[in-house]
Amino acid sequence: MTLRKWPLIWAIMMISIVIAGCSSCSGRMPGSKAGAFSIESSYIQESGEHLSINAEYPVLKGFPGADQLNAEIREKVEAAATEVRNAALELEGREGFVASLNSNYQYFHNKNLASLWMNWDNYTGGAHGLYWMDSYTFNTDTDEIYTFPGLFLEGADGAEYVTNKILEEITGGDYYFETAADKVIGYENDYPFFINGEELIVYFQLYELAPYVAGMQSFSFSVDELESFLKPEIAIAMEGKDPPSDSTPRPINASSRVSSRLRPICI
């Protein structure tokens, strides 16, 4: 297991992410035929004196459950944009302050397994912005959207194994909140996660386990470590596959007030 913490590196800049799939069928394929999994980008882009929205989000195609996922993602994008628009109204008359929203996404796809994660960043006022993640892992043949326990063989205690490893790491850390272990236990083995090549990554949002300056906390498990626990179709799709290029989640904040970039540090 590898712990990643994503600290802030301040820079006033925009970062564009080049997203590459892991096989010939996983790239962005405009106009791809029904039955062939593909992802295309859609955007909400708005600007004003106190407003900046640059939200890229995925539109999934080629499997029966795509419409349902697209609707859920679009709803989240619209809600995030509405929050920032409202914040921009509150910032009127405050020179130099801009309410902002930025998002991008990345994904892994091999065989019938697809894992998609969205990186979000906003600034609505105050000392600094916030960033967070959403993720979806699903089977393009069966339309199953995997929960974390659903990745593992029944009775294999894979989710429990992951929980114990995370708790061990937290116990040995010196920057976690005193309530961090309780927060982990409170998830009841059902964590937010995504699959990136041969790695299964469990992540926690800002402030869940550690202070803002420590960044989001994530815990990475290799397919080799989890192979005896994973369902065969999950392990087979993960084995021997590199992650997409430039695949580290990197939420960005492009407000004129404050800006951030995240880089993982493996320890």
Rank of each mutant, 00 (worst) to 15 (best):
W10A: 05
A11T: 11
A11R: 07
A11S: 14
A11L: 09
A11P: 03
M13Q: 13
M14P: 05
I15A: 14
S16F: 13
I17D: 12
I17E: 12
I17Y: 09
V18I: 12
V18R: 15
V18T: 14
V18C: 13
V18S: 14
I19K: 08
I19M: 09
A20H: 12
G21C: 13
C22P: 00
S23N: 10
S23I: 10
S24P: 05
C25S: 14
C25G: 15
R28H: 10
M29A: 04
P30I: 07
G31L: 13
A34M: 14
A34T: 15
A34Q: 09
A36M: 13
F37A: 01
F37G: 02
S38Y: 02
S41T: 05
S42Q: 13
S42Y: 02
Y43H: 11
Y43T: 03
I44K: 03
I44H: 07
E46D: 12
E46L: 14
E46H: 04
H50D: 08
H50T: 05
S52N: 11
I53E: 15
N54A: 12
N54S: 13
N54F: 09
N54R: 14
Y57S: 02
P58I: 04
P58M: 06
V59Q: 09
V59I: 12
V59G: 01
L60K: 02
L60F: 07
K61E: 11
G62A: 01
G62M: 00
F63M: 07
G65M: 02
D67I: 01
Q68F: 03
Q68V: 07
Q68T: 15
Q68Y: 05
L69Y: 03
L69S: 03
L69N: 05
A71P: 00
A71R: 09
E72C: 07
R74I: 07
K76C: 06
K76V: 04
E78K: 12
E78T: 12
A81C: 14
A81V: 01
A81M: 01
